[in-house]
Design a protein around this nucleic acid. Structure first.
Lengths: 114, 114
DNA sequence: GACCAAACTTACCAAAAAGTAAGTATAGAA
DNA sequence: TTCTATACTTACTTTTTGGTAAGTTTGGTC
């Protein structure tokens, strides 16, 4: 597996590429929720603890640009915007579930109380 | 899933915890190699493109501290140090494989030439 | 006596990711 | 006329992560 480029950025391996698309602090929590139903911006903000407006906006925009979610704007005031998962986004869900379960295993193994 | 703490750091969900343990640019490439056989420090450095001495050292130390790998020092000059994977480390391998395969799928989907 | 090897350590720097806080637009409600 | 709601945007700062380059140790070799 040689290096490769995408959108001007160099990647060393497929894992790095995957993590660039769905990694970071907020992308999996967002996809995890949109897998279940459509959310409005403010619903996501309420449902995801600690996330700020700015982080929510930027992560939603990146997920949209990479084709994982769809953004639907209603021309009303105050604004209404709905976010839904795409087919590509749905394919990420089993990966997230795998990592999540592994995380739970590690937590149990480390004896962390929840 | 409430927040929880480990080694003074706060985590919001299991995915974040898992990625803190085996994520970052270098940990999976290292585990990926040690899964196959024992490596000396210099062998890893040669085998993993772009990694620097410093990054290799710090990532190996973190993986050791978290129980994923074992470090065996021979009291010779010049130094000889061997790294091997632990049982805990072996349990990470299927996760890495899953992410890797997903990354390959994304790369194909994006039409990236390798 | 200078040099070499392996596996580091140290000091410093740059880039990326994330966080904080404040501001914006606009229609309708009070 | 002031306030409220929603979905942002902007500016700035902090934290985290990663990178570069040089130095260290020590016994043996040339």
């Amino acid at each position: 597996m040689p290096d490769f480029k995408y959108n001007g950025k160099i990647y060393y391996n497929p894992v790095e590429f995957a993590m660039d698309q769905i990694g970071g602090t907020w992308k999996m929590p967002i996809l995890w929720r949109l897998q279940k139903r459509i959310f409005r911006f403010s619903e996501l903000r309420k449902d995801i603890p600690h996330i700020s407006d700015k982080m929510l906006t930027t992560q939603l925009r990146e997920l949209e640009a990479d084709g994982f979610i769809h953004r639907k704007v209603y021309a009303v005031v105050p604004p209404k915007v709905e976010y839904s998962i795409t087919e590509k986004g749905k394919r990420a869900v089993p990966i997230i579930e795998t990592i999540r379960q592994y995380g739970l295993d590690l937590i149990a193994e480390a004896g962390i109380a929840l």
